[in-house]
Design a binder for these strands. Structure first.
Lengths: 125, 125
DNA sequence: GTTATGTTCAACCATGGGGTTGAATATAGA
DNA sequence: TCTATATTCAACCCCATGGTTGAACATAAC
């Protein structure tokens, strides 16, 4: 129940905390791409893009196959699934919030705002 | 459809890319906590813990209410919901991967899929 | 008022991140 | 073989991050 693979989560979250890298993932979700192709949309050196790709690889989000002189990169979404798993625990909290909203919308009697609605374990989704 | 609030995602992902901060979130998911209570489990200075909390606040994951001399922190899971939203796009890929696996397991024969037949040397891709 | 408690602030340090450039490596093609 | 293409490597720069310490601030308690 406690975070088992913390370092893994560290790497994945860190990899995602950069717009360039997220854009690369998005690109890879359409086609597999060479390093050069991945780097093309960004105005940064190829070396810089290469570093980004390495960060994605370290997080397990990208796999690389060397084909002659070009390196072909493919998306591997598995770590994203791990993140979603991690997030699942917190779903109850926005679920709970939605329940409170629902309760507010449903309350035709104007309850004073100083009295917060007691949290009740609500149904999720 | 394109990432609208990239900076927001940056902050949230970055906040989550640290085990101390994730542990703090987990703690806040149980009770609201003062800064001191949040810091207690970790062997780092209070100042360091305070910085972590600030990172969480910057990402909108924690809200703080100053009550006398103690600062009470509460979880706000909304940014996590944004992340889940961002992840949703990629669900197709682990879904797709499962589909491909299923297809591989099922489609060893050139005959229609209804025939459960012994295997044949399958070329991948 | 004085003291104790809860928290931040400021300065500092070490490390790593994201960027650059220029050279090195490996392969494809003439 | 010679050259062009694809990519990495190494060195460097600047700045953010995560940690420290000691002082400052605000409030509670005596």
């Amino acid at each position: 129940m406690v975070e088992h693979n913390a370092a893994r989560l560290d790497d994945t979250f860190h990899a995602l905390a950069d717009p360039t890298r997220r854009a690369m993932l998005r690109s890879l979700s359409l086609h597999e791409r060479s390093v050069g192709e991945l780097a093309a949309p960004f105005q940064m050196s190829l070396a810089a893009a290469s570093k980004h790709i390495k960060v994605l690889e370290r997080a397990g989000l990208v796999r690389r196959e060397v084909k002659g002189r070009t390196h072909v990169c493919r998306l591997d979404a598995a770590p994203l699934s791990d993140i979603q798993e991690w997030l699942r625990y917190y779903e109850q909290f926005w679920g709970e919030r939605l329940d409170m909203l629902e309760a507010l919308l449903r309350a035709d009697t104007p309850t004073p705002p100083s009295a917060p609605t007691p949290r009740k374990k609500g149904r999720l989704r």
